[in-house]
Write a protein that binds this DNA or RNA. Structure first.
Length: 158
DNA sequence: GCCAACGTTGGC
DNA sequence: GCCAACGTTGGC
């Protein structure tokens, strides 16, 4: 099984939205590398950190679970959608999506800053400069450390 | 709002 | 196939 980090702007869709919706298709990924991770590597049952970008602080704020195989992202065919792609056809879809399900919201967000300074989190790809991918693999070790930190209330976690 | 880091596009 | 121009992302 694999572990992931799913990045999204908090103002667009937050962990609270995720909690309310329970299960959503993770639509709108329009980057080949991110798509390839989703289409080729994500499996049902994989877990992902839910990460708020453009937030204060930018942080992992919860966990979601992958609950479908990849399938064509319907928004690529929808002219009215922001993510409409005129190059995509139903016969040859360009973009994929998986469904994700809410698992938990962290008691304490684990900030990007923490990921950068904690010795046991060194090397996470999300901390690398210029890392703009919205779908990133996370090692099992890093995932478990962050999940444990997030689930306890601690003045050191922020 | 700024700007560095990337990805994509399109002319050649 | 190169590369300049342009657009987007996202931390700060």
């Amino acid at each position: 099984m694999n572990y992931w980090l799913l990045k999204i702007e908090a103002a667009c869709f937050s962990i609270d939205d995720m909690k309310r919706e329970k299960k959503v298709p993770w639509t709108g990924i329009r980057n080949y590398q991110a798509r390839n991770f989703m289409r080729d590597k994500m499996k049902v049952g994989d877990l992902a950190l839910f990460y708020h970008s453009s937030a204060d602080p930018t942080a992992a704020v919860g966990v979601v679970k992958v609950v479908s195989e990849a399938y064509p992202d319907p928004t690529q065919f929808d002219k009215k959608d922001d993510h409409f792609d005129p190059k995509a056809t139903k016969e040859k879809p360009m973009w994929s999506v998986v469904d994700v399900q809410f698992v938990r919201k962290f008691k304490q967000p684990i900030s990007l800053h923490q990921m950068k300074i904690r010795p046991d989190l060194v090397g996470m790809s999300v901390t690398q400069k210029g890392s703009r991918l919205s779908v990133l693999p996370v090692s099992e070790k890093h995932f478990k450390i962050i999940e444990e930190l997030g689930n306890k209330i601690s003045s050191f976690a922020a």
